[in-house]
């Protein structure tokens, strides 16, 4: 956790990349720009990327632009916070992550992450982005619980979530259909008290 240099002052700074709110050692989280749509599309219709997403491919570019606009509106009403994951050194967009379905009274939200760019897999960038997002969720938008669902076959993701402190809470049996079979969705959650200790 200490390796992540989290600086809220970027919120108010007038640096050229003003949208870099959340910055870690290797990646930063920033709002999506419309220009990101084509970057996303380069990777997004890849079955290996889409396997664990509950949406039918393929996507079109205008659809992605619309999605990006939706993230702006959803952030304003506090329903979802979706951010682009940028690799700092190369300034490449490598993925997206977010807190969505935010329940204001229960102070909880669901977490998602996807690294579009496979060249950047397996180097800890996802973990770092998630640490930033969890700090954002607990410290800045005052969530009490962050939870997620992940596919039973996605062992890599499960290891990452467990390393970050998420506790397995059970499953929804055969709740997701892809590539010809039904798969269980595993439920994980993390309380603010566990994360901030």
């Amino acid at each position: 956790m200490n390796s992540v240099n989290f600086t809220l002052q970027h919120l108010h700074s007038l640096r050229p990349r003003v949208s870099n709110v959340l910055e870690g050692k290797s990646v930063c989280l920033r709002g999506f720009e419309l220009a990101d749509a084509s970057k996303i599309l380069e990777h997004f219709n890849d079955i290996e990327i889409r396997r664990f997403m509950d949406m039918p491919a393929p996507h079109s570019q205008e659809q992605e632009e619309q999605w990006i606009r939706n993230t702006w509106d959803a952030r304003k009403i506090g329903r979802c916070h979706y951010y682009a994951i940028e690799h700092k050194q190369s300034t490449q967009l490598i993925g997206g992550c977010g807190l969505f379905s935010i329940e204001k009274i229960n102070r909880r939200g669901e977490l998602m992450i996807i690294l579009y760019n496979k060249e950047y897999w397996g180097q800890g960038f996802g973990t770092e982005a998630l640490q930033l997002l969890l700090q954002f969720g607990f410290k800045h938008i005052n969530l009490k619980t962050i939870y997620l669902y992940t596919h039973d076959t996605n062992k890599r993701a499960q290891r990452v979530y467990e390393k970050l402190g998420f506790k397995p809470g059970g499953r929804r049996r055969q709740a997701s259909y892809f590539e010809g079979t039904y798969h269980d969705l595993l439920y994980y959650d993390l309380l603010a008290s566990e994360f901030l200790d």
Binding site: N106, T145, K167, G169, G170, R172, R173, Y187
Partner: peptide
């Protein structure tokens, strides 16, 4: 229905957080 998951402290009712059970049937 089978008990398949427990969402910890997932709902705030009358001043307290409570767990929510998830149950399902195939």
């Amino acid at each position: 229905f089978q008990h398949v998951a427990r969402k910890r402290e997932a709902v705030f009712i009358d001043g307290k957080y409570h767990d929510v059970h998830v149950m399902d049937i195939l």
